[in-house]
Amino acid sequence: MSFMIITMISVMLPRADVAAERVQEVLATHSSIEDPDPAAQVTREKGEGWRGVVSYNDVTFAYPDSDAPTLEHVSFTAEPGKTTAIIGSTGCGKSTLVQLLPRLYDVTEGSITLDGVDVRSIGLEELRRQIGYVPQKRMLFSGTIESNIKYGDPAMSDDDMRAAAEIAQATEFIDGKPDGYQSPIAQGGSNVSGGQNQRLSIARALAIHPKVLVFDDSFSALDYKTDSVLRAKIAEQASDAAVIIVAQRIATIMHAEEILVLDEGRIVGRGTHEELLRSCPEYLEIAKSQLSPAELGLEEEGGAQASAAGAADEKGGER
């Protein structure tokens, strides 16, 4: 009997050992992004509060396992009440750029500051509380619509939740559901459409009243109309926040105070829509592919409908 048990153990031990090793591997990995030294930590939440001035100072970033930097010498400042837009082709580092702000990654060189304070000197929680981040991918959590909008602060009031949903243009479809805010959300938000998903993600970010709003290509699944109404609402309701928009669609960002054109990790143009049309060939190329010359104001402007119809003719003619 005892001998049998020993035999059994000798079979099981190596299995346990392998399993334990693999678990240990995960446990032994530590995050490189940590809270600052308490002595050097800057906190303003309790005192004067944060304003939301974000500055990128000569930021260079390379992913740990890559040789070439994803971003090189990026500098810009986003101010409260203003919209800073970032546009560029796929893989140019736009998403990475905004992910550096909440310290999902740390810069390799240079610095990012909030109100002049290096983000690495601000407590992670405090820093992230100032940032309303809307990710590119569908990232809702299983639960209800309510639990998803209240994600950043489960203690928030229902009024705050509704207000956020209102700005995010989500009330219509939420009210249309039989269970309203209690409607279940499946894992990953797979039971709502892409556009609804984005609107809920936006509501989630707005609900925490952030000082900086970051939209990482978050309007792509919205039609133009919802897109423009939503942006107007945000400008109106969250007027004290700095807004950073990453986008592919010119129409989404053409009204931004400053537009940065990113190409292969470098800023190749900056300015307003009109300035860039004149000064930045990359921007013009993107713009031309999406809007007609008339819409871009390169030709004489007629009435809205007439010019649009004209644009349509030209587009149609291209085929």
Binding site: K225, M254, H273, E295, L296, Q305, S307
Partner: peptide
């Protein structure tokens, strides 16, 4: 309406 809302958004709006 939908059509116009998409393309009424030219720079002249500003």
């Amino acid at each position: 309406e939908l059509y116009n809302s998409q393309f009424a958004e030219g720079p002249e709006e500003e």
